[in-house]
């Protein structure tokens, strides 16, 4: 009889990396479904191209660089789907594909693969697409199946859409970002399944709301602010990305507030109508610093401040 001699603990959680990434995919389904409902088959096509090409990019890269193939951890699929959901339904397939390849190969794999990237791959790709093809990225078709031609219309950030329409997603915008109810459903699933903690997502939304309220003095304006554009989507799916957000509770609050405040600043005072992408990318860069400089509380070790007080 040979017995295995391995170190404690002898049981491990069932929530493996692929399970967690699968949870994110499930949480994104309502957004994808809403996008396809509002924008029709071409939205479905965009999502399919973005997801498949992200997985393909990871596979090809790992094959060529002779690394273990890790597409089964589903993280590439998550990145791809996120890219598809954050572009406009009329985005050409080649543009989406470039986005996915850039995200997976340049932002993720070149920096060491899963866990080692310092920027959110999907968001970095979106930023690249925005800078490269600004017109194509911001030409949003009006909602409806019949609409085939792309029409550049004002985003809800510049028009005054009703709160009901904003919640339902009955407004022009990126495929997955318009229907706020779908995003909130996804958030609930992510929280209940223990995939993310409430800190980053909820605090980001709350701080954007409060900061906007402080600036505008209008509750209604602040409600519209958090329900329009990509803020909600970014707060729930992008800011909470494991690798690029801080790990300690204290730094997570700080990071989330930074995103909320930066988003509103860029929207109100910047030249871009939408600020979430850049706000999160900027916060991503600060994440490791926040973890380093916001002191952790270790059991049995008095905090530095307390020691200074004594001295």
């Amino acid at each position: 009889m040979s017995l295995i001699l391995s170190s404690a603990p002898h049981i491990r959680t069932a929530k493996t990396t692929s399970r967690l990434m699968g949870n994110v995919l499930i949480a994104l389904l309502p957004c994808a479904a809403a996008g396809i409902y509002y924008f029709g088959l071409r939205a479905a096509l965009v999502l399919a191209v973005s997801t498949v090409s992200a997985v393909l990019a990871e596979f090809i890269w790992q094959k060529l660089s002779r690394k273990p193939i890790t597409i089964s951890d589903l993280s590439a699929a998550v990145t791809g789907l996120l890219i598809g959901l954050t572009v406009t339904p009329t985005a050409p397939w080649w543009m989406v594909m470039i986005g996915s390849f850039f995200a997976v190969i340049v932002v993720k794999q070149l920096f060491g693969g899963i866990g080692d990237n310092f920027l959110n791959p999907a968001l970095a790709a979106r930023a690249v697409l925005l800078a490269s093809w600004p017109a194509r990225m911001t030409s949003h078709p009006a909602v409806g199946f019949a609409n085939v031609d792309a029409v550049t219309s004002a985003t809800p950030l510049t028009t005054g859409a009703g709160i009901g329409d904003l919640l339902l997603g009955n407004v022009p915008g990126a495929i997955g970002e318009t229907c706020k109810i779908a995003i909130l459903l996804g958030l609930v699933y992510l929280l209940v399944s223990g995939t993310i903690s409430w800190r980053i997502s909820v605090v980001t939304i709350a701080s954007a709301f409060l900061f906007n309220w402080a600036l505008s003095g209008s509750l209604n304006d602040s409600l519209v602010a958090i329900l329009s554009g990509g803020l909600l989507f970014g707060a729930v799916y992008m800011a909470t990305d494991y690798a690029t957000s801080p790990m300690q509770a204290g730094s997570q609050y700080f990071y989330a507030i930074l995103i909320g405040v930066l988003t509103i600043i860029i929207r109100k005072f910047g030249v871009y109508p939408e600020g979430v992408t850049y706000a999160i990318l900027l916060a991503n860069i600060t994440a490791p610093l926040l973890d380093r400089f916001i002191p952790q509380k270790v059991y049995g070790i008095p905090s530095i401040r307390k020691e200074e007080k004594k001295a």
């Binding site: 967690l20 951890d73 899963i114 866990g115 790990m247 300690q248």
Partner: peptide
Amino acid sequence: EGPCIRCG
């Protein structure tokens, strides 16, 4: 063992 995904 897999790579750390920095989930925290």
